[in-house]
């Protein structure tokens, strides 16, 4: 199973890219073996959504990685290094990625992160959804960014 886990807060325009990608994916027919999940604001609690998947594509808004509106593929190892050593209620994706190999039931999945820089317009959301689908299916993408 390949999973696209969309993260964010749909009530905050600066953080709603993930949920909007999720809505777009839910409104279309997904390929066999690909599942879309609304990850909300969870961090560590996404563990159950990650376990037993072959590949997981996270979709989240990002800041400081590219130009406004740009859709990028991020290095999970770089994101994991951003984890605070102290788990707290704001511990998000970085904390999950940092502990994943140790806490995952079964083999840890391949992890890919699609980031949308800044506030997302409709084009960025559509591009992120398309990129996430390609990556989930294992298709090559150009240069890691759209």
């Amino acid at each position: 199973m390949k999973r696209i886990v969309c993260i964010g807060n749909r009530y905050r325009p600066e953080d709603d890219a993930g949920p909007r990608v999720y809505s777009l994916l839910r409104g279309s027919a997904l390929p066999d073996g690909v599942e879309a999940i609304d990850g909300g604001m969870s961090g560590l609690d996404l563990l159950a959504s990650v376990e037993r998947a072959e590949r997981v594509v996270f979709v989240d808004c990002v800041s400081g990685f590219g130009r406004a509106g740009e859709v990028l593929v991020l290095d999970p190892e770089e994101v994991a290094t951003a984890a605070s050593p102290r788990y707290d209620h704001a511990a998000g994706l970085p904390y999950l990625l940092r502990v994943l190999p140790a806490v995952c039931d079964g083999p840890a999945p391949e992890v890919i992160i699609v980031g949308i820089e800044g506030r997302a317009d409709g084009a960025a959301v559509a591009a992120a959804a398309e990129l996430a689908l390609k990556l989930a299916r294992g298709e090559p993408v150009r240069g890691g960014a759209q």
Partner: peptide, 21 residues
């Protein structure tokens, strides 16, 4: 104490990895 997160954009170079409200 619990003061919670509602926004959590991944931020390059920030240890928390989130903007927090």
């Amino acid at each position: 104490p619990c003061l919670v997160c509602t926004v959590h954009a991944l931020q390059r170079g920030r240890s928390a990895g989130r903007v927090i409200v």
